[in-house]
Amino acid sequence: MIPNQAIRDIQRGQLLPVYLVLGEERVLVHRVVAAIRTAALQGGIADFNQEALTAGECDVDRVLSAVRTVPMMAPRRFVLVRSVERWDSSTPKAKGKEKNKESVVQPLDKLAVYAASPVASACLVLVASKLDGRRKLVALAKKSQFLVECEPLERKALPPFIQQEAKDRGHTIDRDVADLLAEIAGPELSTLLDAIERLSLFVGEGGIITEDTVAACVTRIRPSSVWELVGAVGRRDAATALSVLMDVYEPQDRGLRLVGVLAWSTRQLLRFAHAIRSGASPDQAAVTAGAPPYKARELAKQVKNLDVAEIERWLRVLAETDLALKSSRRPPRSIVESAILTMTGGLSRLEIRPQ
């Protein structure tokens, strides 16, 4: 099951005696474990009835002893076991530490036997970044529906996640603004949540999160400057584009946020162009692109002399630029300048080799 479903079920009182929480998205893992802990320890003294263990630092018999211990003045105990992947011989860490394969497999098999018939007076939560899907424990968790998968969210899932997080804090944020935030602060949820929290404090109680507030609080880049840069690129005006770049480039983040905002703006332009070529009016195309109506005329002017293939080429250049900024030894500003020149036609391809 997915984390949101697990948390909803738990909050409705449908607490299971065993959970296997798998995945590398720490924010989701933390939320699921916190929800289970809160529900499991209701009606008792928490300090006397919870235990946190780490696989590899204790043996599996210690875990089984913990879950079979009688609760103290409470309906159940909460037992958390972290880093269960250490007991999986298929992981590199386990392979490097254990020579006897049977001794590594045995803990997971013992946990599978327990999970098939758990005690009602304990809630056991097993947390691992990854386990071999062929393990009995994993197969049982899938079949009995106590597996919670906390994998990183796909890119398309980030805007709805952002909108829900903003709503939970009493704010509204349009889908296109959420997409912008996902572009510049994602994909890691911890970074996104930090940005959302700062935006929440910035706009105040009940405030609306807009492009301008994202620009002021997160990117430090004015949307108008970005559209000016996109416009200069569209006109093949390299001189103006590089001049605008000088104003908006931030050396602190190596230009990554600027590239993210440029990619977001370019995707808006691409959606607008597709809509226009499908017969939509500029105002209708702006809505389709997720752009405010006042941008309709400006966008129509930009796509008039551009074909869709050229805008798609810009997106490929920006994707290469993002990768180069994260991996190349070349000065980041030089990489961004090369990208602008490539987009305007001044260079045939993006230059990313170190100087």
Rank of each mutant, 00 (worst) to 15 (best):
D47V: 14
G260I: 02
A232P: 13
A120C: 06
A178W: 06
R155L: 12
T91L: 08
P17C: 04
G346H: 08
P332T: 14
P187K: 04
L189N: 02
S334T: 14
L229S: 00
R12F: 13
K301S: 14
Q284E: 14
L256W: 01
R222C: 00
A289N: 14
Q106S: 15
L269S: 08
L299H: 05
A324Q: 09
A166I: 02
T54L: 01
R86I: 02
V18D: 08
G13Q: 03
A94S: 15
F202W: 07
K95H: 01
S103G: 03
I335D: 05
K301A: 09
Y294M: 09
V177N: 04
R330T: 07
T210A: 00
L193V: 03
A273N: 06
S90N: 11
I2M: 12
L15G: 04
V81L: 15
R277H: 12
A296T: 06
D109T: 15
L20F: 00
A195E: 09
P17G: 12
I162F: 07
S90C: 06
R277Y: 05
A239W: 10
R330C: 02
P3M: 13
S90Y: 07
L350A: 06
R316W: 11
S89R: 00
N4S: 15
S89T: 10
Q14T: 13
K136W: 08
R86S: 09
E57C: 03
A309F: 12
E351K: 13
F146D: 05
I352H: 02
K110M: 14
A112L: 06
L20A: 00
L41A: 05
N49H: 11
L131E: 04
E228G: 11
V203G: 03
A34L: 02
E188H: 10
D61P: 04
N49Q: 06
G204L: 11
V203T: 06
W227D: 08
S121V: 06
P292E: 08
V244P: 02
E312T: 09
A216N: 01
E154S: 10
R254T: 08
D212K: 08
E310T: 15
M246Y: 09
D47W: 07
K167A: 13
A309N: 15
V218I: 15
H30I: 09
I311S: 07
L64K: 15
R76S: 01
L180A: 06
A291I: 05
V18A: 11
E298V: 10
D307Y: 11
W227T: 00
D322M: 02
G13W: 02
G345Q: 10
V226Q: 04
R333Y: 12
G44W: 12
V113N: 09
K295Q: 11
S338I: 01
Y19M: 12
L262D: 07
R349Y: 14
L256S: 08
L111M: 12
D132A: 10
S265D: 05
A241C: 06
G279E: 04
S334D: 13
T213G: 04
F272Y: 15
E351A: 12
A139H: 08
L140E: 01
E151V: 13
R313P: 11
K99Q: 15
L28N: 11
Q252W: 09
V244G: 02
R198L: 08
E228F: 03
P71G: 03
L262T: 04
G204N: 10
A115E: 03
V261R: 00
A273D: 08
L22E: 07
L64E: 13
K156F: 13
S224C: 04
K142Y: 01
P92I: 05
P75Q: 11
L126Y: 05
L306G: 10
L256N: 03
S281I: 01
F78V: 01
